[in-house]
Simulated scan of single mutants.
Amino acid sequence: MYVCSCFGVTEKQVKEHASAGACTPRQIASACKAGTDCGSCVRRIQAILGRGNCPRRELLDQGVPALTAEPAVVGEVAQLGEAA
Rank of each mutant, 00 (worst) to 15 (best):
E82H: 11
R26V: 14
D61Q: 14
T10Y: 09
G39M: 01
E11D: 13
V9M: 07
A29D: 05
T24N: 02
K12M: 11
G63Y: 07
E82V: 02
G75F: 10
V14D: 03
A18N: 06
R57I: 07
Q62I: 00
Q79V: 04
K33L: 04
C54N: 08
G21Q: 07
A20E: 15
A18G: 04
D61K: 13
F7M: 02
F7T: 00
C32N: 11
E16M: 01
V42K: 02
G75P: 02
A34G: 01
A29I: 06
E16S: 09
N53R: 00
P71M: 01
P65W: 08
A18P: 09
P71W: 06
T10I: 05
P65S: 02
P55Y: 04
A84G: 13
V77E: 09
E70Q: 04
A47K: 13
S30L: 06
G8P: 03
G39S: 04
I48N: 00
D37G: 07
S30H: 08
G21V: 11
C6A: 13
A66V: 03
Q62P: 03
N53E: 13
A66K: 06
I48W: 08
V64S: 02
Y2H: 05
C6P: 04
C32H: 02
H17E: 14
V14P: 01
Q13A: 14
R51D: 15
A47I: 04
L59W: 08
G21A: 09
V14G: 05
P65R: 02
V64H: 07
C32T: 06
